[in-house]
Nucleic acid binder design. Structure first.
Length: 412
RNA sequence: CGGGGUGUAGCGCAGCCUGGUAGCGCACACGGCUGGGGGCCGUGUGGUCGCUGGUUCAAAUCCAGUCACCCCGACCA
């Protein structure tokens, strides 16, 4: 991407009403645009990050058999009546609206019921199970109070996956498979080291659910972790979980964390509530075991901003950065060289943000840091005289001089 | 939803107390000087002061209502 063609611009100051660091930096750097409280639009740079996060999740879920779908945002009342979750007393985050003939409909805050409703059409026999479906979907939740920038909005993007099984054992086994896939996702997203599978409040079927919690000062949760990192428990279930695990509560230390994933088992409850059954070997109707898995895509983006940012701006992990290289060009003579390098790298499939604007060097350096691009390559008349390129690592600030072959070797 | 706070140009702010024809910085446009860390000088563009009503000869300023936004709490399969 050539910056001269990018319509967003960087800001010196964040809007005063934006207190959350993630939103401040993302707005200043031109990654998101605030539409209203808890609602953000993603501009080209921000969209690239989202797509990179989605790509990783898509690959990992695809690798364990997940089939990608897209459900709808408009949902019929009848679907939700079946599980008693249509009423606003049962679910206080509903957005509801009406068709022109006064039929009430709901705007999707989750797709659990909706997925089951659809799958009922296809799952008839034990031969159709297990089934694994997932989607990247906008969730709409009428939160009383939006906060923390893109970490807790009224509209956000989530990957939700659902697995349907004939037996609890099969469901349990796949549940573990998903946990491993999720771990690989967080690893690739760059937050593997600080993300824990934790015990959290359960639901109708299981005593605990599992949350993926990332250590982060901006998080809303408190996590209790032991020294060897083998046990992590959400504060909300600390006593119960410690007792269950036979762990001495006093050996667990509290840390602030942000929930980046939540998985849980429904057992057959959802299937029974909705009267969705399959036919077993003996021709009998049986309920389906269901488990549900969610990764907050936009939230992960916010957490990563919060977690790695420094006083200069965002620091993206390499795999999700909108580009690998930020190419700074200074002076007149070196322009052709920079143009050529840009074409060459892009031709090799290396994503480059080329700062070809008529700006002073300081502006370009500052913006490259604010945007958090992992590596900066500087091409200038001065460097060109020595046939050198400057190579700077965003996270460390380390700068080295390289010849063209050295540079290309480093980038490929 | 309870408590607290804030709304003046795209962004950051002053002006309000003590009513008298709206200002600064950044950004933007043009010109010039600069040219390796948000540079400088000059000339410009851009605002029914959130909205509605009231008081007044006169309201950004005083009063009432309302909307929006932010923070704390509650909530958060």
């Amino acid at each position: 991407m050539k910056l001269s063609q990018n319509f967003t611009r960087t800001l010196r100051d964040a809007p005063a009403d934006e207190v959350a660091l993630n939103a401040q930096l993302l707005i200043r750097a031109g990654f998101v645009y605030k539409v209203m409280a808890g609602v953000y639009a993603y501009t080209p740079l921000g969209l690239k990050v989202l797509e990179n996060i989605k790509r990783i999740v898509r690959e990992e879920l695809g690798a364990i058999g997940g089939q990608e779908i897209i459900m709808s945002n408009l949902q019929p009342q009848e679907t939700w009546e079946k599980t008693g979750r249509w009423s606003s007393e049962a679910v206080d985050v509903w957005f509801k609206t009406k068709l022109q003939d006064d039929t009430e409909i709901g705007l999707a805050w989750t797709h659990e019921e909706a997925i089951m409703e659809m799958m009922q059409q296809f799952i008839k026999s034990y031969k159709d199970l297990p089934a694994y479906v997932h989607q990247f979907q906008t969730k709409l939740r009428n939160e009383l109070r939006a906060k923390s920038g893109i970490m807790r909005g009224r509209e956000f993007i989530m990957n939700d996956m659902y697995s349907l099984h004939t037996t609890a054992e099969d469901c349990d086994a796949y549940y573990e498979t998903v946990i491993e896939a999720y771990k690989r996702c967080y690893e690739r997203l760059g937050i593997g080291d600080s993300t824990y599978v934790t015990f959290a409040s359960g639901g109708a079927f299981t005593k605990f659910s599992h949350e993926f919690q990332t250590i982060c000062d901006a998080g809303e949760d408190i996590l209790y972790v032991n020294d060897d990192r083998s046990v992590a428990v959400n504060e909300e279930v600390l006593d119960d979980a410690a007792a269950e695990l036979g762990v001495d509560k006093s050996t667990l230390k509290p840390v602030k964390s942000a929930e980046v994933g939540n998985i849980f088992k429904f057992g057959t409850s959802k299937s029974e509530q909705m009267s969705i059954y399959y036919t077993d070997h003996d021709g009998k109707q049986q309920p389906i075991y269901l488990a549900s898995y969610g990764i907050g895509i936009t939230r992960v983006m916010g957490v990563i901003v919060e977690k790695f940012a420094d006083d200069k701006g965002i620091v993206w992990p390499e795999h999700i950065a909108p580009a690998k290289i930020y190419l700074v060009q200074i002076g007149q003579e070196s322009k052709a060289v920079a143009d050529k390098l840009y074409d060459q790298l892009m031709g090799q499939g290396i994503e480059v943000i080329y700062d070809d604007r008529d700006e002073r060097p300081g502006t370009k350096f500052t913006d490259s840091e604010l945007m958090g691009i992992p590596y900066r390559v500087t091409v200038s008349d001065r460097l060109l005289a020595d046939k050198k390129y400057e190579f700077t690592t965003r996270a460390t600030g380390e700068t080295i001089l390289l010849t063209e072959p050295e540079l290309l070797a480093k980038l490929s």
